[in-house]
Amino acid sequence: MTFTRHTLRRSAIAALALTALTFATRQHAAPDPAARFPTKPVRIVVPVAPGGSADKLTRTLAEKLAVLWGQSVVVENVAGASGTIGAAKVAKAAPDGYTLLQQGEGITLNSILFRDLPYDTNKSFTPVIKAVVSPQILVVHPGTGIKSLHDYIARAKAQPESISLGLPGNGGIAHVAHEILSQETGAKVNYIPYPGGGPATVDVLAGHTNATLITLAAVTEYVRAGRLRALAVTTSYRSPALPDVPTVAEAGKLPGFSVESWQGYFAPAGTPPDIVAKINRDIQAVLKTPEVRAQLEAQGFKVAGGSPADLATSLQSEHPRYAQAIKAAGLSLR
């Protein structure tokens, strides 16, 4: 075969075209790091003891995310110091999306209550999603003889500190909510802090403490079974999970009383935005499945969702209110 200059030229052009096509194909097929995420197990740090509402929520999501991602999702309980030990652990983790922090309004409360933290609340974390919102609920052991919020307030005023109230975390949202109640009614109780909702619930079930104010989802099953008596929820609305339980505003004749807690997820600061966005989308996808939504709503949660920016805005808006309540109560943690 005789190669002319024209033939060689056409061959060269064809070769260049093939090379360009191959390169473009490879570029198009090159996997986006965010699209491939995760390629190894993901760890979610829950900064309270097992058994409480935060733990239940996270384990529900972890199970479904593991199926969606095809990777293990490990829930690690790191309790202590009102959640700051677990938060500090995540703050120091690699910002790659493989270590997440479960937190709620406690992340704001701790920034107000603690003089020195092992992390900078405003700079150490990247908001991912507000997953759910929920009332706090005041429950008592049936053996106390307290049958209503009116009874509870009356006893706490007539016999100050005679009621022992287990707190799922010193300085947490339950503590702040009860302080607001105390400021408005004059009721005084004996606060007993626990490292989480699970241990606090166990002791009131056993009668070692008289009451607890806790996220509704942590005790719904015990109220339904009659093992705990529910007095009121802290939100402005009743919970569909326990529709017969009145609000504090209703039962205590305290118009405008409202405290709503939430649970969400954070990543270490510096985590790539596309990774944060993917985790947000995938958690929302799990929350929207009928099975998970029904399961969470039956426990007393209300699915929230929204973008990372929505969570950041929520953090900014709640800080002034809680700071005012904490200052009025004279609360501080070292």
Rank of each mutant, 00 (worst) to 15 (best):
P95M: 06
P95D: 09
D96R: 07
D96W: 06
D96P: 05
D96F: 02
G97P: 09
Y98Q: 09
Y98A: 10
Y98R: 09
Y98L: 08
T99G: 01
T99Y: 00
L100H: 08
Q102P: 00
Q102H: 14
Q103A: 15
Q103Y: 09
Q103H: 12
G104H: 06
E105F: 03
E105Y: 03
G106H: 14
I107V: 10
I107R: 00
I107D: 00
T108C: 04
T108H: 01
L109T: 11
N110F: 13
S111A: 13
I112P: 00
I112K: 02
I112S: 01
I112F: 01
F114N: 06
D116I: 10
D116Q: 14
D116T: 15
L117M: 13
L117H: 01
L117R: 08
L117G: 04
L117S: 07
Y119M: 04
Y119D: 01
Y119G: 05
Y119P: 01
D120F: 09
D120H: 08
T121R: 08
N122E: 14
N122T: 14
N122D: 15
N122Q: 14
K123C: 00
K123R: 15
S124Y: 01
S124Q: 02
F125G: 02
F125A: 02
F125I: 05
T126R: 14
P127M: 02
P127K: 04
P127Q: 05
P127F: 01
P127I: 10
V128H: 01
I129M: 12
I129W: 12
I129L: 14
K130I: 13
K130V: 11
K130H: 12
K130L: 13
A131Y: 06
A131M: 14
A131I: 07
A131P: 11
V132C: 12
V132D: 11
